[in-house]
């Protein structure tokens, strides 16, 4: 599945949005995968991931790190979110050195990810390209809202919720940070980027 693909936004905004995930290939290298994915999670936390989680357990807004790490199984997919290329390169280097043997995927602007790979001495293997949205596109939420909603690839963030949060920010009931965290609760797998969302919400509410 492609839950970390199809994130929408401007180049500037997407340059602050990287998702790293770690997964085992079922039936091939899943034996002992739980411990390796736990190591992946410890690594992304160590490097200051702004969000992390396991699709099966939850994200860093609703669960503490120990709970997320403790509940990892061999069928988990674990994630960490970063906001700058340089840190992504450091995490890549660390994971390469750790040689976990698990598949690691990075979502982000190709140009930036490619640079990070070079810095880490990694030769990328495969890519998923987003070829856009087809069909009845007049049913889509407006583009500014999609920047927030597409940060959850499972469609757990509704456009109405983003609009609701923006209204509350405009009314001064909550600030953009609080709004971002409230939205982040519903994206269970931990690929939502709260810092990027905060910027988007601030812009929408201004």
């Amino acid at each position: 599945m492609t839950h970390t693909l199809h994130r929408r936004g401007t180049r500037e905004s997407l340059n602050r949005d990287y998702v790293m995930l770690c997964i085992a290939a079922k039936g091939i290298n899943e034996d002992g995968a739980d411990e390796k994915m736990q190591e992946f999670l410890r690594t992304v936390i160590k490097y200051g991931a702004v969000n992390f989680g396991d699709m099966r357990t939850g994200n860093s807004f609703c669960c503490n790190p120990e709970e997320i790490i403790g509940k990892v199984t061999s069928t988990s997919i674990v994630h960490g979110v970063f906001t700058d290329r340089a840190t992504v390169a450091k995490v890549m280097r660390s994971l390469k050195k750790a040689d976990l043997g698990m598949s690691v995927v990075v979502s982000g602007p190709f140009a930036s990810v490619e640079e990070a790979c070079k810095e880490a001495g990694i030769v990328p293997h495969s890519r998923d390209f987003s070829a856009g949205i087809w069909g009845k596109i007049d049913r889509l939420a407006r583009p500014e809202l999609l920047e927030c909603t597409t940060m959850c690839g499972h469609a757990m963030i509704s456009a109405n919720l983003v609009e609701d949060i923006v209204k509350r920010i405009k009314a001064g009931v909550i600030n953009a940070r609080q709004g971002s965290l409230e939205i982040g609760r519903v994206c269970c797998c931990g690929i939502y980027n709260p810092e990027r969302a905060e910027r988007i919400l601030r812009k929408l509410a201004s």
Binding site: V105, P109, D128
Partner: peptide, 10 residues
């Protein structure tokens, strides 16, 4: 799109 997924081959 300018962004997407890259499998690092690890």
């Amino acid at each position: 799109y300018l962004n997407g997924k890259t499998n690092l081959g690890l």
